[in-house]
Computed example of a mutant assay.
Amino acid sequence: MKKHNLDIRLIVGLLVAHILINFSFHDKAIFWYIFSGSLLVLIAYATLQGEVDDEVPFIKYFFLGALSGFVLYFVFWLGIQTMELLHLPIENSLNKLYKLYAPSLFWQYIALILVAAPGEELFWRGFIQKNLMKYFRPLVSIVIAALLYASVHIYSGSFLLVLAAFLSGLTWGFLYYWKKSMPLIIVSHLVFDIMIFIILPLK
């Protein structure tokens, strides 16, 4: 660790994220309203703290982002198939997750694409992970950021969602460190979300 005292902005950001996401998961009936608003707040907070990295040309970040999003989806699909082959009781949990939190209305799909995916990346990778890099080695920063990203999903009450957030957080964290491109990981997150919620849901 390079310094002993973490930036107060980082601590405040984490506290705000936990409060907002906890509130989002509190009432399933209005989840998408509160979640979308919460992410808009986190986007504003993150962008006020520093510039957004974009060191990869458009064609390259679009291709790598789309490819990584497809690969991550395929890894999750394989994971679900493996769990089912091992007769692990995940079907009910998976169906419940989709029923409670998957977008179902047109505006919710728009919010997923324009707010949720970009917002999570701007805050958790573009702000949290980027600031952790000032105090820890790259690998440690990526793991801590992924754990913190997973931690706010605890309020959903779903272990599957927490695990999925941690694994995807590791993937996007590594991509962000490797390529220093926020658009790349936003594209990756978007492709993953479109696959998992619209084209080929895992339920």
Rank of each mutant, 00 (worst) to 15 (best):
residue 97 L to H: 13
residue 123 F to C: 07
residue 148 L to R: 02
residue 161 L to A: 03
residue 7 D to R: 15
residue 8 I to R: 15
residue 199 I to A: 04
residue 58 F to C: 02
residue 183 P to L: 03
residue 166 F to A: 00
residue 190 L to W: 02
residue 109 Y to D: 00
residue 79 G to K: 04
residue 73 Y to A: 11
residue 158 S to T: 00
residue 64 L to Y: 14
residue 188 S to G: 09
residue 124 W to P: 09
residue 85 L to I: 09
residue 85 L to Y: 11
residue 107 W to A: 00
residue 193 D to N: 06
residue 53 D to H: 11
residue 90 I to N: 06
residue 57 P to E: 05
residue 34 I to M: 10
residue 131 N to T: 02
residue 26 H to N: 14
residue 100 L to S: 08
residue 73 Y to E: 10
residue 135 Y to H: 11
residue 190 L to N: 03
residue 158 S to M: 00
residue 54 D to C: 10
residue 29 A to V: 08
residue 91 E to I: 14
residue 94 L to E: 07
residue 102 A to R: 09
residue 3 K to G: 02
residue 100 L to E: 06
residue 167 L to Q: 05
residue 28 K to E: 15
residue 170 L to P: 13
residue 174 F to A: 14
residue 135 Y to L: 10
residue 146 A to R: 04
residue 29 A to C: 03
residue 75 V to D: 03
residue 50 G to M: 02
residue 57 P to A: 10
residue 61 Y to A: 06
residue 153 H to N: 07
residue 157 G to N: 11
residue 160 L to N: 00
residue 180 K to R: 14
residue 159 F to C: 00
residue 20 L to E: 05
residue 11 I to F: 10
residue 129 Q to A: 15
residue 7 D to C: 02
residue 52 V to T: 10
residue 162 V to K: 02
residue 159 F to I: 07
residue 47 T to F: 07
residue 168 S to Y: 11
residue 176 Y to F: 14
residue 12 V to N: 09
residue 38 S to D: 11
residue 166 F to W: 04
residue 190 L to I: 09
residue 36 S to K: 02
residue 197 F to G: 06
residue 88 L to M: 12
